[in-house]
């Protein structure tokens, strides 16, 4: 589904990604771990098409299509979803209205009519139940005054509504207490099918107890320095990242 080949990216003069190779197939869950500043969030943003980053080499291929020059909104229409570490507050626009706009813009891009109001309400009800979201919450302004946990839960709610092919969860666990973490993870697990894929970006192993990955990749200094199965997370938890950094240097 997703194939990243030798991806280099920089912001201004600073090179952040230095040759990433990654293949994600439908039905898989991948975790990307690594110390602060290793390039995890940059990788997520580059896949989603953030224009601040310049891709200097390599490519991101989604379903055989090179995403170079594809705008963030078109990537979303093609099924890419990024759950943000710091979701943005939009005063005056309710969660419901925001979702209506997002869904109908996607439909418009696919040449479909707006979703009938009745279907929209049904979908909202169904997905908000999945994430244990109170109805009152849906009429609040998007992310305005939301707690950290509410913001993250709302991100996954948006993911549930948009039903992406490829979901990237950027530090979705940060700022979550254990109950919220369970709800969010449970939501992600229920949305998982054999046709979609998830990339979980996290600093800690904790989230991976709830969203169990098929593969784990460790990012350091803009490169994937180690890949493995879920057991790698435990090893990282135990030893930290330093041994990998050293290993990378030795290599």
């Amino acid at each position: 589904m997703l194939k990243i080949n030798n991806l280099h990216a920089r912001v201004e003069d600073k090179e952040i990604l230095k040759g990433i190779n990654l293949t994600v197939n439908a039905g898989e869950v991948h975790a990307i771990m690594g110390p602060n500043g290793s390039g995890k969030s940059t990788l997520a943003s580059v896949i989603a098409g953030k224009e601040d980053f310049e891709v200097t080499e390599g490519e991101v291929i989604l379903d055989k299509e090179n995403l170079e020059d594809v705008s963030p909104e078109d990537r979303a229409h093609k099924g890419v979803f990024l759950s943000f570490q710091y979701p943005v507050e939009i005063p005056g626009v309710s969660v419901t209205n925001f979702m209506k706009t997002a869904i109908n813009e996607s439909r418009k891009a696919k040449g479909l009519e707006d979703m009938p109001a009745k279907d929209m309400l049904k979908l909202i009800r169904e997905k908000s139940e999945l994430l244990e979201i109170d109805r009152k919450f849906l009429s609040r302004s998007l992310n305005e005054g939301f707690s950290g946990g509410e913001k993250k839960r709302n991100e996954i709610f948006q993911m549930a509504m948009l039903e992406p092919k490829l979901a990237i969860l950027d530090e979705t666990d940060s700022g979550l207490d254990i109950d919220a973490l369970r709800v969010v993870a449970n939501g992600v697990n229920k949305l998982k099918t054999k046709d979609n894929a998830v990339i979980v970006i996290t600093h800690y192993q904790r989230l991976l107890e709830y969203i169990v990955p098929d593969f784990i990749h460790v990012l350091h200094d803009g490169k994937i320095v180690k890949s493995g199965t879920k057991e790698l997370a435990l090893e990282l938890e135990e030893k930290g990242y330093d041994w990998l950094k050293n290993e990378a240097v030795v290599k």
Binding site: S45, G49, Q158
Partner: peptide, 30 residues
């Protein structure tokens, strides 16, 4: 206009023009 906010809206499938309008509206909202 906040570029990160613009990217957030675009990443939800909202085209740039509409995303900018939403941000301007949010700015004037109170």
């Amino acid at each position: 206009l906040d570029k990160d906010a613009l990217f957030y809206l675009q990443s939800r499938g909202i085209p740039k023009k509409e995303a900018r309008a939403l941000l301007m509206y949010a700015f004037a909202n109170n």
